[in-house]
Nucleic acid binder design. Structure first.
Lengths: 107, 107
DNA sequence: CTGTTATATAACCGACTTGCTATATAACCG
DNA sequence: CGGTTATATAGCAAGTCGGTTATATAACAG
């Protein structure tokens, strides 16, 4: 049971999604991530902490810098959970006609 | 540009994910959804409002009842966005050896 | 019409979020 | 050593969230 709360709630913020989109292009340091956003460095640092806590990014130490890159674990967890919804939607769609037909006469 | 904020933040709550999991088994009324959770009916009603606003469920009117079922739209939007991360993770994984090799000699 | 059932809404409260500024830490440059 | 650069942390204010209780609405049962 992984931390879906943390993962989904990390993704709920547009700034954090933008950071991830930026990291999808490749590793970046904190200051590189601060630059494109109109936001202070502490704010970005905290967003990164949230993303790291959710398992969406990892950081290494490189002198003074802390380059970040995407981590695969959280995305896999989310995919797995969403799979449940996807399957349900597919089968419900298949059954939809039958379900509706069975319902109307009963009301 | 759909409402990814609403969708992800709706999924960030464990009660709401549990509701969706229940709806994956099939349509349910509000009271049917209240029952398994140790929570008052107004609380569930608000969760449903959030899920509906995020496009994760739809409701019909059936007399006094408002049966809910899963909606496909938000899941599709999320999938699409996550696809970007998935692709990035795949390609980054492919490049990982090269990236690391190129990095070490430079530090 | 009356009472009950299903659901929604309002008002409130404590906890958390997200931005800010100011400051700490720690590595690097000369 | 001292100054600059990269990042983290602390403390604060405004806003949001997620629960509660109390109440409204609206259909249904008799």
């Amino acid at each position: 049971m992984p931390n879906l709360d943390a993962a989904f709630s990390a993704l709920a913020d547009p700034t954090r999604r933008a950071i991830l989109a930026r990291l999808a292009l490749g590793e970046a340091t904190v200051m590189e991530l601060v630059e494109p956003f109109e936001m202070t460095q502490p704010a970005i640092s905290r967003h990164l902490k949230v993303l790291e806590g959710a398992g969406l990014i990892v950081r290494r130490v490189e002198g003074t810098k802390r380059p970040c890159r995407l981590a695969p674990t959280a995305v896999a967890e989310i995919d797995q959970w969403l799979g449940m919804l996807r399957r349900a939607l597919e089968t419900n769609y298949d059954r939809l006609d039958g379900v509706l037909a069975a319902m109307k006469p009963e009301t």
